[in-house]
Design a protein around this nucleic acid. Structure first.
Lengths: 248, 248
DNA sequence: CGTATTGTTGAGCGTAGTCAAAGTTAGTGG
DNA sequence: CCACTAACTTTGACTACGCTCAACAATACG
C-alpha cells in the first residue's frame, strides 16, 4: 500500500500556508523568511497511499502541497471512519510535534505531494518565532473545532443533513484554498468516501446525494461539485460556519 | 441558567493538573512555581450551568477543580450532542488562548468549581516557560485525539459498542484522576447524557445499558459505575487506549 | 478494448427511534 | 420524618431510517 518515494526538488516551501496564516496573524519578514527556509523533503504519494500509519513514530510533519488527504481509523468489524479531510496548504499531522505515536492513519486521495518537515526544525522555528507558534496553535485548534463539529454531524444529524453539511464545509474550504473556479469545486471524494466521512453506507449516500440533486441544491459528477443554491444547501445542512473560525 | 458567582479563596492553584503534566514533561521548580503563582478567580457553578457559551469571547481559561463538565452543541431540530467530558484537573476551554470566539457550549454536570485564569497570564506563562507550553500543547492534542475517537465512535459503531467504549474511556480517566475507589467509579452522567454523548436516544441507551448489566460487564446505578469484567467490556467497546496517549 | 472502479437500482430487513405511560429514586419543604 | 415533587429510569407497542445483499449500468483507465 505504501507508494511514497522521496524526491528533493525545490529549495523553498511554497507560500500557500503562509498566506493562510497571514490572514489571521501578522508575520514579520523574519518570520516569513525563517518559515520558507525550513528544511524539507518533497514526497509524492499515489492513490490511497498511507502517509501516516497508526502506531507509527514520526520525526517529521507533512505539509500538503497538492492533492488531498484524509484522516481515518478502522474499527473492529472492518468499518472505516474518516475524521478529517485536508486540502493543499494544510499540515496533515502537525500533532507529530507533540505526540510520540500516531493515533490514526492518514491516506492520500487520488494522489498528492507533501513537504516533509523535520519535527525538530518546526519546533525550533516555533520557539524562535512566537507569532508562528501562535499560527500553528491556531491551526491545531481549528482542526480540533472541525473535529468537534464532525462529532455533532455524525452523532445528531440525519443522512441528508450530514451530507449537506459536509458539502458546505468542503465548498467553503475549497473556495478559500483556490480549488474552485466559477462556483465549481474540485470535489475529491468518491461516494464511498463520503459515506465513510458521514458514518453512512455507500448505498444510502448515493440515494441521499440523488435527493440533493433532485431538489436542485447541488450538481455533482465526476469530481466536480457545483452548489446551485447555497442558502438552501446551508439550511439543509444545518450549517453555521462559526466552527471554521474564519479559516476560510 | 447562569448560576456562577465569583469567590476568591485560595491564593494558589491546586497541583492536580501539574501532577498530570509531570507524568509526561519534566518541569523545573521555576516552572512549577510560576504555574502555581498564576492569578485566578475561583468560581462555583450549579447543576447544568453554562460555563462557556457559543459565540462568547472569553478572556480567561477555566481549570476544573472539582465536579465534572461537558462540551456540547445543539443542532437545528433541538437535538444535543455532547462532544467531550472533562474531569477535575483538566482545562475545559484551553482553546480560548488561541480562538477569539467560543464555537461550542460547556456545561457543568451536577455542579463544579473552576479556577478562571486570565488568558494573558497563561500566554505569558507559556512564553516564558517552554516546558509548560509543551505540556499545554500536549493537552490540546490529546483532547483533539479524543475528539477524533469520538467521531469514530458515533460514526461507525453500533449502540452497544458505543456505550461500552464510552464507559471504558471514562473508567480509565476517572481512575487516573482519583475519582475511583476499589474499582468503583464516580459516574457523573445520567442516561440522557450518555445518550447525548453517543448519538443515541435515552430509551435505546437504557436498553443497551441493561444488556451490558445483564451480561455481567458492568454494574451501574445511582452515579456509581463498577466494571465487573474489564477485558470483556474492552472487547465489547472495541476499545484501544492508544488514543489517550498515556493521559491516564 | 477489456477490466476495474464507481455509481445506481430494487427488495427486504433490522437497529434504533418515537410516543406514551408507569415505576423508581432523589431532593425539598412542611 | 414524611409528603410531595421533580428528575431519572424502565417498559411496551409501533415505526422508520438507514443497512444489507445482489445485480446492473456507467465511467475511468491502462
Amino acid at each position: 500500500m505504501r507508494t511514497g518515494r522521496a524526491v528533493l526538488i525545490d529549495p523553498y516551501l511554497p507560500p500557500s500556508l503562509l498566506r493562510r496564516w497571514e490572514r489571521r496573524c501578522h508575520l514579520s519578514d523574519q518570520d516569513r523568511n525563517a518559515f520558507q527556509a525550513l528544511p524539507f523533503t518533497r514526497r509524492c504519494y499515489g492513490k490511497d497511499a498511507y502517509i501516516v500509519e497508526e502506531g507509527q513514530r514520526a520525526t517529521y510533519c507533512s505539509l500538503l502541497l497538492s492533492g488531498f488527504a484524509y484522516r481515518q481509523k478502522l474499527v473492529h468489524d472492518g468499518g472505516r471512519q474518516i475524521m478529517a479531510i485536508h486540502i493543499p496548504g494544510e499540515f496533515i499531522d502537525l500533532e507529530n510535534c507533540s505526540l510520540a505515536v500516531a493515533d490514526h492513519n492518514v491516506q492520500s486521495l487520488v494522489g498528492c505531494e507533501v513537504a516533509q518537515v523535520p519535527v525538530a526544525a518546526l519546533r525550533d522555528l516555533a520557539q524562535a518565532h512566537p507569532t508562528i507558534a501562535a499560527a500553528m496553535r491556531l491551526d491545531m485548534q481549528i482542526n480540533a473545532s472541525i473535529s468537534r463539529e464532525w462529532v455533532v454531524n455524525v452523532g445528531r444529524r440525519d443522512a441528508r443533513t450530514r451530507i449537506a453539511h459536509l458539502l458546505c464545509e468542503l465548498a467553503l474550504r475549497l473556495e478559500a484554498s483556490g480549488n474552485a473556479t466559477g462556483g465549481i469545486y474540485q470535489f475529491p471524494l468518491t461516494q464511498d468516501q463520503v459515506a465513510d466521512a458521514t458514518g453512512l453506507t455507500p448505498v444510502h449516500t448515493n440515494r441521499t446525494l440523488q435527493s440533493l440533486r433532485r431538489d436542485g441544491l447541488i450538481s455533482l459528477s465526476s469530481g466536480a461539485l457545483q452548489v446551485l443554491n447555497w442558502e438552501r444547501l446551508r439550511q439543509a445542512g444545518d450549517f453555521n460556519e462559526r466552527y471554521l473560525h474564519h479559516a476560510v
